[in-house]
Structure formats: C-alpha cells, structure tokens
C-alpha cells in the first residue's frame, strides 16, 4: 500500500471524533452542536473505510454509506426541530432549554 498505513487513518479518525465531541460539549447553539455531531459521524466513517481497506473487503464502505444515510435523516429531524424553535421565538441556547430537569 502506498502512503501511510491504516493506523494513521484511524488515528486521524479518532482526532476528528474527539474534536466533534468537544464541539458538542462546549458549544451552546444547537446548530453548532448538530454540526459537531456531523464531524463525529464523519470521523467514524473514516475509521470504517480505513478498516475496510485493511481487511480487503468493501463491507466497511457499505456501513459508511448507511451511516451517511442515517446522518442525513438525523439532520433532517434536527434542523426541523431548530426551525420549529426559531418559529416560536425560542432562544437557541441549549443551556436555557432545561425543562427536563429532575
């Protein structure tokens, strides 16, 4: 295989995942959080495809395509929620949305 070994790709994927997790944890706007979730999903996609290359079969790529489809559906629902919140003039701040506190 030319170029870096699969290990490098997986480490890169891990870094992407962690960056996405950080974004989810430290941002207050639901939009940015949703984008960070996308980054996390992309990170795991990269890992899947890297492992598919390592194993020599395309099953990992199939998985990655499925993940993409699911991510798309999730973004639809998430954006729908955000639009609904915007329509009702709810402030787009996760820290203020605490009705489910125990």
């Amino acid at each position: 295989m030319h170029g870096p070994e699969v290990t490098w790709y997986v480490v890169l994927a891990a870094m992407l995942f962690v960056i996405g997790a950080l974004g989810v944890l430290v941002r207050r706007s639901p939009l940015i959080i949703l984008l960070s979730v996308e980054i996390m999903l992309n990170g795991s996609n990269l890992a899947l495809i890297a492992f598919a290359r390592h194993v020599g079969r395309e099953d990992g790529q199939i998985f990655a395509i499925a993940v993409m489809a699911i991510a798309a559906s999730e973004v639809v629902v998430g954006l729908g929620l955000i639009v609904a919140m915007g329509r009702r003039n709810v402030e787009l701040d996760v820290d203020k949305l605490r009705t489910l506190r125990g």
Partner: peptide, 16 residues
Amino acid sequence: GRAQNGLVRSYVLAIA
C-alpha cells in the same frame, strides 16, 4: 438529584 440539571451538555459529558 442534583445530577439531573436538565442540561444536555452534562449528560453528554457523563456519557463521554
């Protein structure tokens, strides 16, 4: 009960 503050962020932190 103080752990249930309604913030999604805390919950995600717990998961992480």
